[in-house]
Amino acid sequence: MLNGSVGSLGIAPELLAVFVGFGLVVGILFGFFGMGGSFLVTPALLMMGYPPRVAVGSGMAFVFGTAVIATLKHHDLGQVDYKLGGIMIAGTTLGIEVGRASVFYLEDLGLAGGIISIAYVLLLGGIGLMVTREAIKGGGGGIDHDAVEKDLSEYEIPDTAKWIQQTIRIPPMVTLRGDVRVSAWVITFVAFLTGLLSGFLGVGGGFIRMPAMIYGIGVPVPVAVGTDLFEIVFSGAIGSYLYGQGGGVDLGIVVPLLLGSALGARVGSAATAVVDADGIKIYFGGMLLAGAVAVGIGEIGSYVGNPVLETIGLLLVIGAAVVVAAAILYTTVISLRESHHPSPSTAD
């Protein structure tokens, strides 16, 4: 039955183990930081030699599966605004389709791999710099896990969101959870831009959409998190469907990745209860920067036809993620033991 590949997935056992392991790492990062992880998958697949449409399509299908699992959890906590989600879905759908069409068009021109990689370098580099700077300053970056436990009425609307709400009052106006009143066009515009990014890069877009919802629309953090995940379920499903029609979704990649990430997300999420995320955010920023460098090195290797550079790039992007995930696990275990055995003399 197996005959060199695992069942109907048609994948070698070694590769299956690699994908489950990588999924576990990505899941830990996603569960702990509430973002990240998933946008390491597409560049890793690109560097492993998968065609751009398979790398992006499978990356998007993986994001879809991850979002389903996370939304089920947030639905149980009552943190999803379905009205906001519905409008976001409409704008994102159009954005994804424009992004996807761009990938297929660039692929016809033979430019897709290069341009997607450059976009990743800029994106990972930009976000990596931002998160690292915030971490060094001692500020945020990523989800404030403590914030999720506050009441919705306790949240202040950021100044930018207040300005947008007072300036752009094109009807129809909608009222969202937390008594936020905003033009449906603002929501649609934010959704279109993030959908464009999703369709072009195969990412969930949450790391752009969540700050956009908080600072652009003014919704409370927990609602932004829950609604974002709900929206990713739909955008991920539509994107995966469109890529799947073009043969871009490989179950041999998605199924093992999801198997590992679902477990990793539980571990990462549980770790947030015992570890201070601020201390590790600097590593997260460093990981994103390493990812940007890795994609750049891999692309140069591909351009000059040097497979060693491509391998170095791949090892760097996976290695950086593994190191951060291991740091989270190590810190969690140490924190747990310290909290239960404050003095070494009392230990068995």
């Binding site: 879809f64 599966g65 389903v68 995966s240 198997l259």
Partner: peptide, 21 residues
Amino acid sequence: TWDPATALLIGVILFEAVVLY
């Protein structure tokens, strides 16, 4: 456009996600 094979593909991922949760 409606494509049963692709819908099944997405269905498999959805099913796996729920089972894993």
